[in-house]
Design a protein around this nucleic acid. Structure first.
Lengths: 341, 341
DNA sequence: TTGTACGCGTTATCAG
DNA sequence: CTGATAACGCGTACAA
């Protein structure tokens, strides 16, 4: 048997579909309480479940939220291998569900646009991570979909933002190394792009260096991608070409893992010979051996707050709220940084 | 301006909506090629994008696939912290998208059922990981939603299954340790439940032990949850109470990480004092220090194949295909197992 | 409370 | 053979 519709309920209850609809939506002004009770009974027994497609069509809201995350080069796969993203998604999904929304997780094929998806599926909103070409943002503005940006420094009041003070984080990490007596401090980082988080962390690094009256040496920054592999490559370079470097700030934990690995491969001990500090505190960081000293941000909370902001925007309570939420940062000292001398 | 509908296209093209619909679906038997061309032009210029909700309503297919993954106790959050799940989701999403489907990622609130979601959203199919109460499976059968089970030993021809030979994997891991000269081999594992993957791995462990004519000692199996924390706890126990154990088989890589960590904390060296072998080969395993020796399965492929199976079922080509796909297993020797003596 | 038009796209039926 | 008309799927909300 096919699934029951609102008509079946109406028929069984001996009322009109309108009444059922009102009852369902708790419009006590439209239907008497007794009728509501009776209808609820019937819904129970025949096991009626409203169809979201139909609802979406008439109410023009899908209760569906999209999430835009970077993809692999080939655009074939999401980079969920990076635990940072999966943790944040966890946070988003939980909060969304709490408010009756669902999460549509999709990458985008070559050439196509996420905008298409948003329109097709009638997304009520979307959460974006990473930075993209400007036209990408413009597209969303044009179709008026509420957007929350995670870790973005795009300054446009159309979007709400949630992030951390990356510059301060970079400063904090570097300062920590300096306080421990290090002066030749390497930076291993993903691509430094304008308005990206990495740029800010880099800026913080430089500020700490300058503040300590050290010489900022561009040769000490190893910039490529935010990946384990790049960490490996940079670590190797440092071990072989820059033995004077005694400490490294990796702008992401995964990068730090790679660096530590190759440093050890090259015969260095961490932290005895060289200290490493990471950034993010993904769940793996405390499990790593040695446990990673890093700048902690609450990743799951970031996701949850992003979801909350978005829901407020969707429900129209967006104005009375801050355009930007900045989450706190702390340093968590574990076992990869050692005081010098 | 609001988004263009099929009517707008029809008006602009001077044809009926039916014609536009036919053109869109490439029904060359219904519309002349020229008309199709002209309509396509117009669609381009006014930027028309069909609405999936409307489509879903009439075609009764949503192009939406659900995915059921275990949740944390509180039912608040998905366990995406375990990279195993995120990697598999990566694989699923990529393949789904390739075929024009999208992924709905949702946990389930306390008391509610995933069935509700499936009906509401008109899911075309779902992929399930983990094992659940029987009624859960029955529900899906009742509403006739195609389901692919990942890592399940539920034997019911209604479902297609994708997995590995877990018993063999458990055997392989244990045998490897035995071949390296170990005889007192501990097992650290998640809950051993009937028809679960863990049970099979456990069985493989026992088979290898018996085959080698060793004594199977129940005291050597540390069963709790498939978590880093349990690995830690078990490792500590082994170090303190069972110094005679020289090798450990952890039925999941995360568990192995935890075990190694506490073993080291307790002053043991891995692998010099005690060997550890894991299971799964999540991407983190090769990054771990020391790199984890483990039983490798292609997690991403598992997801991709699951998606493919499901799509075939949905498209009705399910019968001509195997009910079960078993992916290969290999042992990857890294640095946590050492030959004895 | 109810009848019903409506939202959007599909498709069976009918006409040119 | 090309194209139009109209009913339909499901739930909502306005006018009565």
């Amino acid at each position: 048997m096919k699934k029951p519709t609102i008509k079946d309920v109406a028929k069984a209850a001996g009322v009109s579909t309108a009444t059922v609809s009102y009852a369902l939506n708790g419009r006590t002004d439209k239907v008497s309480n007794e009728t509501i009770e009776r209808i609820k009974q019937i819904i129970e027994t025949i096991n009626y479940i409203p169809d979201f497609s139909a609802r979406s069509l008439v109410k023009n809201q899908s209760k569906l939220i999209g999430i835009v995350i970077p993809q692999t080069e080939s655009h074939k796969q999401l980079i969920l291998e990076n635990p940072f993203y999966s943790e944040i998604i966890s946070g988003i999904e939980g909060k969304l569900r709490e408010h009756g929304y669902h999460l549509l997780l999709s990458g985008v094929n070559q050439g196509e646009s996420y905008l298409n998806l948003s329109v097709q599926r009638n997304l009520d909103g979307a959460i974006m991570m990473g930075i993209y070409p400007e036209q990408f943002y413009d597209g969303f503005k044009k179709i008026k979909i509420p957007i929350v940006l995670i870790d973005s420094y795009i300054n446009d009041s159309y979007f709400k933002r949630i992030g951390i003070d990356d510059e301060y984080g970079g400063y904090l990490a570097t300062k920590h190394l300096i306080d421990k007596g290090h002066s030749n401090i390497g930076l291993i980082t993903g691509a430094i792009r304008k308005d990206g988080v990495v740029e800010k962390r880099f800026l913080g690094y430089k500020r700490a260096i300058r503040e300590a009256n050290f010489f900022y040496n561009p040769d000490y920054v190893f910039e490529d991608s935010m990946s384990y592999e790049h960490g490996m490559a940079a670590g190797k370079l440092i071990a072989s070409k820059h033995p004077e470097i005694t400490a490294v700030f990796a702008t992401g934990d995964m990068v730090a893992f790679g660096a530590i690995r190759s440093l050890i491969n090259e015969g260095k001990r961490v932290p005895e010979d060289i200290s490493v500090i990471g950034f993010d505190d993904i769940s793996m960081s405390k499990m790593f051996i040695p446990p990673l000293t890093t700048i902690r941000q609450s990743i799951t909370e970031k996701g949850a707050v992003a979801a909350e902001l978005l829901i407020h925007m969707i429900q129209g309570n967006g104005e009375q709220e801050a355009n930007e939420v900045v989450l706190p940062l702390t340093i968590v000292e574990r076992a990869t940084v050692k005081a010098l001398g």
